[in-house]
Every structure is written in C-alpha cells, then in structure tokens.
Design a protein around this nucleic acid. Structure first.
Lengths: 256, 256
DNA sequence: CAGGACACATTGTCTAGTCAATACATCAGG
DNA sequence: CCTGATGTATTGACTAGACAATGTGTCCTG
C-alpha cells in the first residue's frame, strides 16, 4: 500500500515519507544511520533546510533520533509492563496474563526510586478528584522510579492533609508495608479505585524529569482510591513515557 | 516556577516558552488567537522563519493549531469518555464513576459508524493474541466510529475464522445484540479479557482515517477476550486520538 | 605510550528573502 | 438583495547561504 514515495506532496513530506517507508519495510533497522542531511538534499535536489523539515517530522513521530554530530539514526524501542491492578489485587495472575508478563522478570533489572514529600496546594485536577477546594493544602509524595539508573516513570501520590498528618506517609522514606496499608491502619481502607488515562505530549518539566526525547508521547494515569463510604483518600498521578511502557488491565465478566 | 521566558536558550525556544507560559497561565485561553508570525518576529527581533520553528514546537505539543490564513489559535480540547469495562460489566456505575461521566451525555451527540468486514492475514501482533500462526486467515470487522460526523475512533475486531464463519459477524451490518452475544450463542462465551494500552504517535494511515492533526498522540487499546477455558476468541484493536479521549477503568479491592 | 591540541564532519540555529495557497472581506454588477 | 470577481492578510513551502556547537578521531608533543 502507498508504495511510491508521495508524488504531488511537498518535498519535505516526500522525504519523510521515503524514510518512513524504509523504516517500516525493515530496509532501515533500529540503530541504522540515515544519510546526512546534505546527502539527502543532493539526492532530492532540495535545500538542506527542506530536508531538516522532513526529518523533523520523523523525529516528532519518534521514528528517528538525531545524535549530533554523528547523524540521524533509527530509534530503538523496548516496552515495559505497567499493570495498575497489581497493587489492588494481589491474587495470582491468570495464565492469560502470564503470557504477557514474561518479559518483565527477564533480565536482572535493578529498580530504584527517589522519594520526596511536600505540602502543596491542590491544582484543579487534584482538587476535583480529592474533593477539596482548589488551592487547599494537600500532601504530595513524589517519586521518580528508575530501572537500571534510567528514569522510567513519575509517580506522585496525593493525600488530603487531615487524614495523613503525623503518619509515616509524611516521611520521605520507603514504607515497607505500603502507603495503602498505612491509610487502612488509620481507618481509611480503600475499597474502590478509578483509573483515568490521558494521552498527550509531555510538558517540558516532564521531558526533563524523565529524560524524554522529542516525539515521545506520555500516558498520564490518575489513580484515585476511595473508601467504602465513597470518600477519596488518595490520588496518584503516574506519568509513563509512551515508548517505554505498555499498560495492562485484566477484566472478568463474572466475579472471580 | 520558571517564570521568566528562558534566557540563554535559542530564540525559537524562548518564543515557544513564552507562549507556552501564556497558555498555561490562562493569559491565552482556548480559541484565542496568537499574534501573527510577522508580529512575533518583530517583537522578538528575529526572522519569521525562527518564529515558525518556535510555533511548530507548540503545534507538535498539541497546544496550538494553525488555521491558514487566519493565524495560530490556542487549541480547544474536549475529552470523550472511553470506558472499556462498560461492555463487559453492564452493572450500574458507582457514584464515583458517575462523577466523571456527566459530560458524555451532555449535548446531543449523534453517533454513527461505518462497518466493513474482510478476511485478512493475521499480523504478528494479532496472531500472538489470537494464538494462530502469523499469516493465517482471520476475520476483521473494521469500524470507524464518528460523533457528529467527526471520526473519533477506530475499532477493529478480529476473530479466528473457524469459529465465526457463517455467522452474523461476517455481515457488514450492525448486530443489535452485539458480537459478544453472537459468540456466546455459538458456544464461545467470553469470561475474561485482557486490556493492553500502548501510547505512540499515529501512523499516516491513522492520521488519514481519523483526520488527526499534528501533535496528536494516539492510545492503542488491544482488548483480547477469552472463554472460560482460556481460549482467545476475539481481539479488538481500538485506536483513540489522545486529544479526544479519556480512558476510565474502575477497580474494586473486594468482589462486588 | 599517554595526554592534550586541533581538525573535521555533522547537526543546530538563524537570516532575508521569494512565491504559492487559502479563507475572508469588499465591492461592483445584475 | 444576491452573486461573483477581486483584493488582502496570513500561513505554507522553499532557497542559499552563514556561523555556532559538539562528538570523534588524528596527530603532535612530552
């Protein structure tokens, strides 16, 4: 399908189309180098700037990366599993899920994290989910999780101030039994959670915190936990780089 | 934080940063028009091309759109709810979910869809999920769903050929009782499903089918249904434009 | 042989223009 | 009043340069 480059389209699109095709067809494989901008310009008979416009399309699509002053290279990807249900249902995974989780435990991955606790003012999105007023003081427990030293996701949990003050949650240290258990011990056992997933391009701050390249979208996962009486007690914001994660849920038609 | 534009950075980044800030702060609101490229160029004392480079950043971030020859405008967003669980659990939504679903039924939205059924060869990703061999013939039931005439998502269901041949699923018409019920009537009642969500930039084909703008990432949702004995009988691929959807799951700690 | 200075290739940033395409407004003619 | 032609402002596409920034490798020096 659409074998030819793209007759009639602007030159920069033809150039992008050409190399997109070579990558899709496998003629150019991950890690391979593209010709230099000048070489492409000569080949297509256009100015170098036009080539740059075309290649920048592929960069924002996440297909290639520029490594100055080496050249442009086809990007290499890997997917990491992200399974929100694991934290709420510590049941044994069904065989079906196991088929998809094999990759995660392969290779000796070394997880680490940096924790930072602070009091912040609720932004409108958090205020709505925690049912407090915008600007109210809440507790933010921010983490950047890394695997093998590479930051892989942002995990910011937020709690209403009145229910967690003076608890271990306020301490910027790892809590072995888990913050959900701490909440439960404080009388706020979570019973239900709602997951909301948005997809968008990252903000400059996220690009910086996660070391993202251009052309990498992120999934933003709001995980709001409720007690049995329907009160929200926790709102966790996960930011997952799109090129490093796969989000997996499991559903059952009949209670399990 | 980082109040000033961005001293020291390249001019095109300062320009992007300036308008990104104005949008974030609310000084520029959705639908508002930015100054013309020439005006910005004059203001910053740079060439128009430099302004274009800067604004193109904001376009790929999905913050602004260009409407030739009117100018650049701050993008207006609306989020449509996407709730994979609805199809498997027709129970009444809990009050917590209702808080988030209010927007969907507001406004008289007119849904429509175009259905197309064909026999295709299984691509590697589908073959793995349906446990058939790559290249095996399977049934593809492709839909583009539209709301108010605007295509909003791609919904391609795939079935192993042997279990659906000669059934209504092969007909390119709407099946009122739903394809899941058809499968159940054929003796393949689904019992479990696995949801996998990937985030990436769209392919040119998806851009065309969904009428996407630049800077719009997509969420790709693989929904694989299994019968009680663990046999996959359906694999649905949903492609959701990131700027139009919010994906919502609900979880319960204790069976409901 | 080790280390530093330098050259080189390549991408990054930017200029000052030209011409094309397009949606909208204006205005003349019926 | 409506209709169609014409103008106009704006973005889109592109050129032919210039100079900066930066890894990599080479080569000279001690």
């Amino acid at each position: 399908m659409e074998a030819q480059n793209n007759p009639g389209a602007p030159a920069y699109q033809r150039i992008a189309s050409t190399y997109r095709g070579k990558i899709a067809s496998g003629e150019l494989r991950p890690g391979d180098q593209l010709p230099t901008e000048s070489a492409i310009a000569d080949q297509f008979g256009v100015a170098r700037q036009t080539v740059r416009t075309g290649l920048s399309l592929l960069v924002t699509e996440g297909l290639i990366v520029a490594r100055r002053p080496r050249g442009h290279f086809v990007r290499e990807r890997e997917h990491m599993l992200y399974r929100p249900q694991e934290r709420s249902r510590p049941r044994p995974a069904t065989p079906e899920v196991d088929r998809f989780s094999q990759q995660i435990s392969a290779e000796g991955r070394v997880p680490s994290q940096r924790i930072e606790v602070s009091l912040v003012q609720a932004t409108p999105d958090l205020a709505e989910r925690l049912r407090v007023e915008t600007g109210a003081t809440i507790v933010a427990r921010r983490r950047v999780r890394s695997i093998n030293g590479e930051p892989t996701n942002i995990n910011d949990s937020h709690f209403p101030l009145d229910i967690v003050k003076d608890s271990e949650i306020m301490s910027p240290a790892y809590v072995p039994r888990g913050t959900d258990q701490v909440l439960a011990d404080l009388g706020h056992r979570q019973d239900r959670a709602i997951d909301e997933i948005f997809v968008r391009m990252p903000t400059p701050e996220e690009i910086h915190r996660l070391g993202l390249g251009l052309g990498t979208p992120v999934a933003v996962h709001y995980d709001t936990g409720y007690t049995a009486d329907g009160t929200p007690v926790r709102c966790t914001v996960n930011v997952l780089p799109g090129d490093r994660h796969k989000i997996v849920f499991e559903r059952s038609w009949h209670d399990d």
